[in-house]
């Protein structure tokens, strides 16, 4: 075979392979959660509906969603942080689906987390707590509250709310409970080491806590339970001031061509089968607090969700740009 013919036949074969890759009837789900693979597989097994996943970290995924703007290419978006979803609903990127969750057996917290717009629906919930590396703090008294973290100033790791939906949810909840000015001042006294504040991802926060300079971390509780499950010398403290719920929520794109299948997918996520599939996931997100009655949390999780506060999404969304900018200017090098 002549080289040129060989090259062209390879090119034609590759083009055919690449071109046939995009199936128009598949449901496209964008998600930042590592539970999505298991949930999607279980959904396909049950319904026969094929799901194509696009999984990135929250910051990158929302960057992609922002670039797609008013022409979103997902059918279902499933991320953590209700403030983000609220903004997307306000921008009419998400479509309200009244009645979608009418038959869902939500827990009390689940019912409270469903927004009035019904443009997105809480699937699981977590919160932000304090992760303590017991080996590093030694005989020191562990913190009991956010305020106690002042005593650990310089060795407190925290995520950058600009790059993490859950971290912004924490910041907004922090300001809601402390007051904006008082909250800012307290954070200035806690996050005094810029090497540890404003870290880009939860994974990097954990590295700082386990092998780096941090002895405590402001971290999502799912991630802390995952560390405990891996036998790392870590314990979890829910601060006495209270914590704010971080729902992972799923919404449907206004432009979707697969509305029925998208609704079926979200409804599946809100069943015991769906939540059980999510708990089989390998990563930290599988340690969520269930929002469906009769489902028990995985690992060492304690059931204290009844005391969790609900964020005022509208207020958080309205102040999002300013608060994120403040955090970036103070704590991100």
């Amino acid at each position: 075979m002549k080289p040129i013919r060989f090259v062209s036949s390879i090119f034609v074969a590759l083009s055919a392979a690449l071109g046939s890759a995009h199936a128009a009837d598949h449901l496209v789900v964008y998600s930042a959660l590592d539970t999505v693979d298991a949930a999607a597989s279980a959904f396909t097994e049950k319904t026969g509906i094929q799901v194509d996943l696009v999984r990135l970290s929250t910051g990158e995924l929302l960057g992609k969603v922002a670039a797609e703007g008013d022409n979103p290419k997902f059918d279902v978006l499933w991320v953590e942080g209700s403030a983000v979803m609220s903004r997307l609903a306000d921008q009419h990127i998400l479509k309200p689906e009244p009645g979608l969750a009418d038959g869902v057996q939500y827990t009390d917290l689940g019912h409270r987390l469903v927004p009035k717009s019904q443009a997105y629906f809480p699937v699981t919930v977590s919160t932000t707590a304090i992760a303590v590396n017991n080996a590093k703090i030694g005989s020191a008294r562990p913190p009991k509250s956010w305020h106690d973290l002042v005593g650990f100033a310089g060795s407190v790791a925290a995520k950058d709310p600009n790059l993490s939906g859950p971290a912004f949810q924490w910041l907004a909840g922090y300001f809601a409970s402390k007051g904006v000015d008082a909250g800012k001042q307290e954070l200035l006294n806690i996050l005094t080491n810029n090497k540890l504040s404003g870290i880009p991802s939860g994974g990097a926060v954990n590295k700082s806590l386990i092998t780096g300079d941090a002895s405590v971390a402001i971290q999502q509780d799912t991630s802390i339970y995952a560390l405990i499950d891996q036998k790392e010398p870590v314990s979890i403290v829910y601060p006495s001031e209270g914590v704010v719920a971080i729902p992972s929520s799923a919404g449907i794109a206004r432009t979707t061509q697969h509305e029925d299948n998208a609704k079926k997918f979200i409804q599946f996520l809100l069943t015991k089968d769906g939540e059980a599939a999510m708990e089989r996931a390998d990563g930290g997100d599988g340690f969520f607090a269930p929002l469906i009655q009769g489902v028990k949390g995985k690992g060492a999780r304690v059931d204290n969700t009844s005391s969790w506060q609900i964020l005022d999404d509208a207020k958080a969304s309205a102040n999002e740009t300013e608060w994120k900018q403040w955090f970036r200017d103070q704590f991100v090098p």
Binding site: S57, G59, E60, L62, G63, A66, A67, V84, R87, D160, N162, L163, G165, F168, P200, E320, T321, K324, R328, V332, P333
Partner: peptide
């Protein structure tokens, strides 16, 4: 802080 990281941060925060 470096320029390329700041570019990444600007495109990976929300709103972008």
């Amino acid at each position: 802080g470096l320029l390329t990281y700041n570019i990444y941060a600007a495109t990976s925060s929300f709103p972008v």
